[in-house]
């Protein structure tokens, strides 16, 4: 598997640096190198990494942040019929300092963008971003003077959830995709262990993964029945 590496020191802001901060480079799995170095430490790190990642992905605390319509569907995912607690992500935090991930649920406005950036900066590592809905993904149907054409113009995004707005189920699927990607991550196990980089797995595109099955569909349900 290939990874995207962001080094910690690169993420420190220099004057005139452009968002998203940090150099990203595609690299091979660092574990492979570890294995070559020593069989035992390699194994140990792998066990530790997957244990820590397992813990992280099952207790993701979302930041209580919403912009527009998508936030209503996101809230719907938090309430009883959809119950996000099944995935360990029900502990909504009102402060970015206590949150693990931020869902950009709604349109990213130019007036709001500097504020979103500040809130993101206030979150502590490890942190992730889910872009929810067409507006956050790409500007969507709002190609208009006041809207940033996709939140990834200034934030690093981990998962994109399609829809306008996405159904609560789609958001929950996005959350599970984030969990899958967290399971594959390689982060420093301590400030003295190994290379101090954050390795994010390049996860397979869902569109490509499901294409074969989706194009098999030849008959769509007619809309005149329920």
């Amino acid at each position: 598997m290939t990874y995207t590496l962001t080094r910690v020191e690169d993420a420190l802001a220099a004057e005139n640096a452009r968002y998203p901060l940090g150099e990203r480079q595609r690299v091979e799995d660092p574990m492979q190198q570890q294995v070559h170095r020593s069989v035992f430490t390699g194994k140990l790190e792998e066990v530790l990494n997957s244990t820590v990642n397992w813990g992280r992905k099952h207790s993701l605390w979302p930041y209580n942040f919403g912009l527009s319509c998508c936030y209503v569907e996101m809230t719907t995912a938090f309430t009883s019929p959809h119950d996000i607690a099944r995935f360990g992500a029900e502990v909504i935090r009102a402060s970015p300092r206590q949150a693990d991930f931020m869902v950009i649920a709604g349109t990213c406005f130019m007036k709001m963008a500097p504020i979103i950036q500040q809130l993101y900066d206030q979150m502590l590592e490890p942190k992730w971003v889910i872009s929810m809905g067409s507006c956050a993904n790409s500007g969507g149907m709002y190609d208009i003077y006041s809207v940033v054409q996709g939140v990834d113009k200034f934030l690093p995004v981990d998962v994109y959830v399609a829809g306008c707005p996405p159904r609560p189920e789609a958001f929950l699927q996005g959350l599970q995709l984030l969990q899958d990607s967290i399971q594959e991550e390689r982060r420093p196990l301590s400030w003295v262990v190994g290379d101090q980089g954050v390795y994010r797995a390049e996860m397979p595109s869902q569109r490509e993964k499901h294409r074969d099955r989706r194009i098999q569909v030849t008959e769509l349900r007619t809309p005149d029945g329920i």
Partner: peptide
């Protein structure tokens, strides 16, 4: 202008933020 895509793409620097 009406469209965001009629002008230069949005970017944000540490300074502009």
């Amino acid at each position: 202008h009406a469209r965001a895509t009629e002008v230069d793409p949005y970017s944000m620097t540490v300074e502009s933020q």
